[in-house]
Simulated scan of single mutants.
Amino acid sequence: MVRRDVLAGARDRVFDNRRLPSYEAGEIAVPFVVWGTEKVIARDTFWEEHSHPTHELLWNERGASSATIGPRVWTITSTVGLWIPAGVRHCGWTPAGTWHRAAQFGVHAVPSIADRPVAVEVTPLLRLLLGRLDGEELRADERARTEAMVLDLIAPARNEILLRIPESPLLAPIVSAVLEDPADTTTLAAWAARLGVSGRTVTRAFRAETGLGFSRWVATARVRHAITLLAHGEDIEEVAACVGYHSVSAFGTAFRRITGTSPGRFRVR
């Protein structure tokens, strides 16, 4: 199920497959409080399931990527990152051209901001401070002050871009169709007829597994795909059509409802 989502639409493309080890929280002692890395990803990359001995904060300077934990898929951008507690197994998908950033936080010095993965608002100030930790030779007292400011600024985002992937065999055809082609316009009634059940049955199944009705789940899947296209500079009108909207205004309404911002403002960011 995990690979079906993160690799949807990538079957005919060549991509890198990265394997990383899995550690329990604190299994390896680290000498740092915060340690950052960055890399521009040259090719589409799938990161196989792994876990870190440290807490991890993921975000991007450019582009959009995703991280999958169980049936939940978070979209990661330049303004919405993801906090993953130490020891939590996850996999990921990073499209080519993404400027990927990560910061590791030692469990000996930093309590997790939550006992589960949580979206984090990556503000300009937080980004600046994390960059200072990565790129400058700091005195011990300067580094300690910067780290303290970083920890004060990390907070859950008001809007997280999260898609829960249903695992029910009943919903599998719908999930596969939408993930492969977000522009698929098959209605709830048409899917119900195709599956030989009532529309109410499909709706109940979606709500039970994802907390969303059919229409909201499809809209969220479409917006996730749209974010990747917008992050690569695609025209808003073209993106709207690519994800199944017949007008830019309808696309904008759905985008704002799910992300809290407009497509145009997202592109500027």
Rank of each mutant, 00 (worst) to 15 (best):
W93S: 12
C91L: 13
G81C: 04
A67G: 05
G36Y: 01
S78F: 07
G92M: 09
G63V: 10
Y23V: 00
W59T: 05
R72C: 04
W83N: 02
V33G: 03
T75M: 13
I28H: 07
E48Y: 07
E24S: 15
P53V: 02
P71V: 10
A64V: 15
F32E: 02
R62E: 02
A25T: 04
T37P: 00
E24W: 13
Y23W: 08
P53T: 08
N60A: 05
G63C: 06
G70L: 09
R89N: 04
V33F: 01
S78Q: 14
H55P: 06
S65C: 10
G92R: 10
G87R: 11
E24K: 15
V80W: 01
L57V: 10
P85M: 05
V34G: 03
T54G: 00
V80L: 06
V40H: 02
T37Y: 06
W59D: 01
S66M: 14
G92S: 15
A86S: 11
T77R: 03
P31N: 06
W83L: 02
T77M: 05
W74F: 07
G70P: 09
G26W: 05
E48H: 14
W74L: 01
G36V: 00
I84E: 09
G81K: 04
E56G: 11
P85W: 07
E61T: 08
R89Y: 03
W35T: 03
H55T: 08
K39N: 12
G36L: 00
E49Y: 08
T37W: 04
D44Q: 09
A86V: 09
V34F: 06
V80T: 15
C91E: 13
G63W: 05
E24T: 14
P71W: 06
T75D: 08
E38Q: 13
T75N: 07
Y23L: 01
S51A: 14
L58A: 07
K39T: 12
V34R: 04
W93T: 09
L82D: 13
K39Y: 04
W35P: 00
G36W: 01
V80D: 01
G36T: 12
